[in-house]
């Protein structure tokens, strides 16, 4: 077991809860909405983003002493895109079915503000080990919100979880219908709004 210092524990806790990238920092909202119709895609996206966020934070943190500040944004972008393209190519070579499902959304990890936000805001000024943990925690915090929303959307919208039907047939026979709004864009916005409300009510955070 790797021992974490107290400071590193704080980093982990912030990414996952009190400074959650989606509900607190308003980062990465775009893809959080687009891939949450199904739990499966939400999980895959969460894993992909966690990997990219952690490894790009690590890389940029290792390079931070050498990057000229004038071109730092573009260098960070390059590092992130190289990682994303590598992930995309690996998926296409070894997990073809998965890559077929994710399509353009893998590419959009590049501009996911969580990755760039953590790289610019944390990895540029912190040592590699902590930067890696920060990327990891933020990625996981994002994945948690994603999966939570996806569970509700898939259950209410299609009556399934991970593709398997969970609602009993009798329910449909008694006139229950799937909530079509949940699979559409507005449903995603409402749910995320409610999740933000809940998380902020529990963690006690208030805007201004």
């Amino acid at each position: 077991m790797i021992r974490l210092t107290r400071k590193e524990m704080t980093v982990l806790k912030e990414g996952l809860w009190s400074g959650n990238p989606v509900t607190f920092q308003v980062l990465g909202v775009c893809s959080a909405l687009a891939v949450t119709v199904k739990v499966e895609t939400a999980l895959l996206m969460g894993i992909g983003l966690t990997f990219v966020a952690a490894s790009s934070s690590l890389l940029v943190s290792l390079l931070r002493a050498f990057i000229p500040s004038r071109i730092r944004i573009i260098v960070q972008l390059l590092v992130v895109s190289v990682l994303v393209i590598t992930v995309d190519q690996l998926l296409r070579a070894f997990f073809y079915a998965v890559s077929k499902q994710m399509s353009v959304f893998v590419g959009l990890i590049i501009t996911n503000c969580i990755v760039m936000g953590r790289v610019e805001g944390y990895a540029m000024i912190n040592p590699p080990r902590r930067a890696f943990l920060d990327g990891l925690a933020n990625g996981l915090g994002y994945a948690a919100v994603l999966v939570l929303i996806a569970v509700v959307r898939e259950l209410a919208g299609s009556g399934t979880i991970l593709g398997g039907a969970v609602l009993p047939r009798e329910l449909y026979e008694h006139g229950y219908v799937n909530n079509g709004l949940m699979v559409l864009a507005p449903g995603a916005f409402f749910l995320l709004g409610l999740v933000v409300w809940l998380q902020r009510a529990l963690s006690g955070y208030r805007e201004k």
Binding site: F66, P68, V82, L90, A93
Partner: peptide
Amino acid sequence: YTFVFAFVVCVACGLVLSFVAQSLRARQ
């Protein structure tokens, strides 16, 4: 320094990507 750094980063990224793409192409 900025120029040299930008150049090195570009070449390194290009190499990594070409290698990845080339070695996985047959499989894809």
